[in-house]
Amino acid sequence: MVDDTSSDAEIIAASLDDPDCFGLLFERHFPAVFSYAVRSIGAVEGEEIASEVFVQAFSSRRRFDLSYRSARPWLLGIASNLVSTRYRSFERRNRAYRRALGRTGDTEEFESEVADRVDASSHSERVQAALAALRPPERTVVSLFVFGGLSYQEIAQVLDLREGTVKSRLSRGRANLRNALADIGEQWGNDE
């Protein structure tokens, strides 16, 4: 029998016999997964991904290493895979259609080229664009570190990397973001 005081590993183990137990994991981690996904890829895609994470996690829970007490790194790892896949397909499609048919925008946003540009130039959009422009391996590690709040060790665990590789990717990501956001960084320093 599991309850709110049980560890994630205990909940997952119990869910192998009683699938409904997995709901506890959802209640515990959905806000963090949602936040990570939305901050990594935007509201529309992020919402879909956050939901998809738990469906995928449920179907693959037998592969969860029960020696880890917390499932959060594992869930964020699934989320980061979905984000990466989405980035790839969305970028590919967007590039092709943007090139061919004109400017693209999000249906949830306003749809003119003026509006797109206005949006793209806003502070937060600039920052997200800089993140999106990182090489995918750097972007994934940076997102897990900054938005997921995972440690080097946890990132290494979920991405199956050595800790040193995580640190070097974070370092490169930080340097590239610093270059891309130099002007904002200057203001940042002045504002503080």
């Binding site: 509201a43 997200q128 570190f145 938005f147 891309a180 960084g185």
Partner: peptide, 16 residues
């Protein structure tokens, strides 16, 4: 400056 601080600040944490 640390760009990670800018990321944290500029992309606020959403609540579902």
């Amino acid at each position: 400056f640390d760009p990670f601080d800018i990321l944290r600040e500029a992309v606020p944490e959403p609540t579902p």
